[in-house]
Design a protein around this nucleic acid. Structure first.
Length: 876
DNA sequence: GATAGGACGTA
DNA sequence: CGTACGTCCTATCC
């Protein structure tokens, strides 16, 4: 163990250890869904975390080689020349690893023409000089020469990267029979195959040690080489130049000029968020807590300023009402909610905090103020808005929601709690009650204290916020929030009898299909287990292998369809049918379970649930109710008009994303297509294939349709060929023809990605931004994924903006006109409205006007409206 | 009991 | 080698 009084400097050869990890860990287990390999990164970090925990260095640096070229190759071009090319899969991981390290505030050192071990040697020398205990971590045997009383080497043993052997002068002597500084002499004589440094033939470690002991030093040995007898003596004399060269090359430089010295390498607090972000990207999950445990948590906590949080004054509703009456500036507000009901209300200015129990009396005393336009700042206002609504109060003056503001600033940021925002934007900590303790040691923040934090975070966020984003927040998101609250409260009526009847049918059918399937293979398997299915398909039936997955071969629907074509087997069709039936049944069962006593399903819209600006829906997700097959639409038939209402209205935008493309690109052909009134795909097909619209066959229409939609997602010729099941050459030709007629589309898409690369973010028509740091990543997979996402983001995001604008305007209009009709669901480009008796005409007019008028584009926004007693019937 | 992976539903 | 989501099940990890 190291002397606790002395600081410990740990210097690590990043390259050699990551390389060992690369071969030690199976790459199949360490590949992200984007096909980014991470085994070297994972293995290295895993080892580093263990090292930090075990050694507790006070100072740390990690050195990397810059390239294969170094002063050694300049001197001796064959140096390391026999090493096989480092695999691209490995090299691609190094920049990512360095990103992680920098997020962990660990200094990464590289120097052109200098190898990592020379940097280690230099820092080790400086550290030993300046009174540090030095730990050198390297997988290169040459570093043995660095070992002294002050410098210890940690060297990976053969067992694997996690087992490091500790070399001090005594252990080196025991293992190699010489003092550490003599090790290079042995290496020079024996040679180093991996470095392509041949030594003296027939001389191994034993002979080398014997000679050195006998002659005292290498110089002495070489001077007196004539005294050595036999074949090895001859060999030595013959290869004496090689030995001199080896010795020259394996001497590590300990006087490299570096931008930092040991004192600059003090362990610093990690950037917890950056680490979380990059780990998310690398899909490391289990490693995150280990990293935080080893280096993160304490430092971050110490780093956050300990700010005295004002104490909240407990008052009666009447006193609180009097107090708020005197406030002009925005007030922070938190209504704690449990089971949809308000519990306690906290209000705060910068200096004064007030709290009261949320009772009928409080609602009565504060209702007017809550409904007034007096500006209020909340974090995650929607549940609070709903709880107020239950008490008969419509919250007015919603000036900011820090949850939405934080999301708009960083939509990829997964964790948007108030505490996270406070840390990021104020550098302070929100006290948290210890979870899992019945009597917590620490009290959490009170409602008024949360309100106080929200108020101050709001201001800090607004300072950073570009105007365009602030406009999206104020003019789109906050009004949308109010509307979503109302939609969630309204819910949608769903018929339990309809669902349960369908469910029973499907259960019977699935069971029968399963029996048939078992019969075709002669045994029972769990048809829901991909693992067991793989055994059946590829081992027992010996069907051709399909697309690879992380754990084997795919058994998904596309793979089964391919198999059915290339190697038909009755089991395949039965399996597909079984999947279909059980999937439908699952959906039905989960919907049925979500029906509340009011016979309605109340989903939760997650306003911050996407990176593009779309909503998401959970508990249950009502945005993925089946629609494609006739049978599955029976589920939609169970979504029915509720009691007291007359009919359901559905309204959807047709081809909204293509229309946005036409607008953004200004492509005259595409704009004409939308203004002509002709079916879009027929029009495009006519242009692409050079025929009259009437002559466009359904095959032609299918192709241009796939192409058009694919464009929005950054589709490649490969992807297009796969989807249409045509040759890649044909897909390529199709794309060429398409762009020959609609060239401005391609120009726009290219320019849009270029611009995003330039500024680092994309922007929707309304100014919503999405950052894309990976557009300039040296990693091709990351970069190209980012390019496709960046291509799509302004289009999908603008469509989301337009729908939100239409949505809250419809909601507001219905209210202002005193109608009972209400919006129930939003499914990205579709709305479902429950229409009250006698209100159809007005409702349809409002919906059509507001949807078509939500944006002024160079093409019309086409809206399709349908009506019916249930969702399926209403879908025209 | 929690988490990961495969599969699949929607726009 | 097409974007954006949520949820179910099974298998595996702890």
């Amino acid at each position: 163990m190291t002397d606790s009084a002395k600081p410990t400097l740990m210097v690590v050869d990043g390259h050699s250890l990551a390389y060992r990890a690369f071969f030690a860990l199976p790459v199949e287990n360490f590949t992200t869904k984007d096909n980014q390999h991470t085994n070297a990164i994972y293995g290295f970090l895993s080892m580093l975390v263990n090292l930090i925990k075990a050694e507790k260095p006070t100072h740390m640096a990690i050195a990397f080689d810059t390239s294969r070229r170094s002063f050694r190759t300049d001197e001796y071009p064959e140096y390391k020349a026999t090493r096989s090319e480092t695999p691209q899969e490995f090299r691609g991981q190094i920049p990512l690893l360095q990103d992680v390290l920098s997020a962990m505030s660990i200094t990464v050192l590289t120097k052109e023409g200098i190898e990592a071990d020379d940097i280690l040697a230099t820092l080790a020398a400086q550290g030993a000089d300046q009174g540090y205990d030095v730990l050198v971590v390297s997988g290169d045997r040459d570093t043995i020469q660095l070992v002294t009383d002050e410098v210890t080497l940690l060297y990976p043993s053969v067992q694997g990267v996690s087992q490091l052997k500790r070399y001090d002068p005594v252990t080196v002597q025991e293992r190699y029979g010489v003092r550490p500084e003599q090790y290079p002499d042995i290496a020079a004589l024996v040679g180093e195959t991996s470095d392509n440094l041949p030594g003296v033939p027939k001389v191994g470690e034993k002979t080398a040690v014997k000679w050195l002991t006998q002659f005292g030093s290498l110089d002495e040995l070489l001077d007196r080489a004539g005294e050595i007898k036999g074949v090895v003596g001859g060999n030595l004399r013959e290869h004496i130049d090689d030995v001199r060269r080896n010795r020259k090359l394996n001497r590590l430089l300990n006087d490299v000029e570096l931008p930092v010295g040991p004192a600059d390498l003090a362990v610093a607090p990690i950037d917890a968020q950056a680490v979380r972000d990059i780990f998310a990207r690398l899909e490391f999950r289990t490693l995150l807590p280990r990293v935080f445990e080893a280096v993160g948590a304490e430092e971050v906590e110490d780093d956050a300023a300990v700010v005295a949080i004002p104490t909240a004054e407990q008052v009666t509703p009447e006193v609180l009402a009097a107090w708020v009456g005197t406030q002009q500036a925005p007030v922070g507000m938190t209504l704690t909610v449990a089971g949809g009901r308000g519990l306690r209300l906290g209000l705060a200015t910068d200096t004064e905090l007030r709290e009261t129990d949320w009772t009928d009396a409080a609602a009565a005393a504060l209702g007017d103020w809550l409904a007034s336009d007096t500006p209020k700042v909340l974090h995650d206002a929607k549940p609070q808005v709903k709880a107020l609504d239950v008490a008969g109060i419509r919250l007015g003056g919603l000036a900011d929601d820090t949850l939405l503001a934080g999301w708009l600033m960083r939509p990829s940021f997964p964790d948007k709690t108030l505490g996270n925002l406070v840390e990021r934007y104020l550098g302070e900590k929100v006290p948290e009650a210890d979870p899992g303790q019945l009597v917590p040691e620490h009290e959490g923040a009170t409602p008024a204290q949360e309100a106080w934090f929200a108020l101050r975070v709001s201001r800090a966020l607004r300072e950073d916020m570009p105007d365009s984003v602030a406009t999206v927040l104020t003019d789109i998101e906050l009004p949308t929030l109010q509307t979503l609250a109302a939609m969630e409260l309204a819910g949608v009526a769903v018929s339990h009898p309809a669902l349960s009847e369908f469910s029973s049918e499907l259960a019977e059918r699935a069971a029968a299909i399963a029996q048939d399937a078992y019969a075709t293979i002669g045994r029972e398997v769990n048809l829901g287990s991909p693992k067991q299915l793989q055994e059946v398909l590829f081992d027992e039936l010996e069907l051709p292998k399909t697309r690879k997955t992380k754990t084997g071969y795919s058994t998904d629907a596309a793979a089964l369809a391919d198999l059915q074509e290339s190697a038909p087997h009755p089991f395949l069709e039965l399996l597909s049918q079984h999947r279909e039936a059980t999937k439908l049944r699952q959906i039905i069962e989960s919907l049925d379970a979500a029906i509340k006593p009011d016979h309605r399903i109340h989903t939760t819209y997650v306003q911050t649930g996407s990176q593009t600006g779309r909503l998401s829906s959970t508990d249950p997700n009502l945005q993925n109710i089946p629609v494609r097959t006739e049978e599955s639409r029976r589920i939609r038939s169970a979504f029915q008009v509720g009691e007291g209402y007359e009919t359901l209205l559905t309204a959807d935008y047709s081809q909204i994303e293509m229309r946005i493309m036409a607008h953004l690109s200004g492509d005259e052909g595409l704009i004409e297509a939308f203004n002509s009134g002709e079916d879009l795909h027929r029009f495009v097909g006519a242009r692409v294939f050079g025929v009259e619209p009437a002559e466009v066959t359904s095959a032609m229409r299918t192709k241009v349709k796939a192409m058009s939609y694919g464009l929005v997602y950054g589709l490649s010729a490969f992807g297009l060929s796969k989807q249409l099941r045509i040759e890649q050459a044909e897909a390529k030709q199709l794309m060429l023809e398409y762009f020959a007629r609609f060239g401005a589309v391609r120009d726009y898409l290219r320019a849009s990605v270029m611009a995003a690369k330039e500024v680092g973010y994309t922007e929707t028509i309304f100014g919503r931004r999405r950052p894309f740091p990976d557009l300039s990543s040296p990693n091709r997979v990351l970069r190209e994924n980012a390019e496709r996402a960046a291509l799509n983001a302004p289009i999908q995001g603008s469509a989301a903006d337009i729908m939100k604008i239409a949505l809250f305007h419809i909601h507001d209009d219905l209210q202002h006109e005193g109608m009972s009709s209400r919006v129930l669901l939003q499914i990205h480009d579709e709305l479902v409205v429950e229409v009250a008796p006698g209100e159809w005409d007005a409702a349809e007019r409002i919906v059509r006007e507001r949807m078509a008028g939500a944006a002024d584009l160079s093409v019309p926004l086409d809206v399709q409206v349908g009506r019916g007693q249930d969702w399926n019937e209403a879908a025209h």
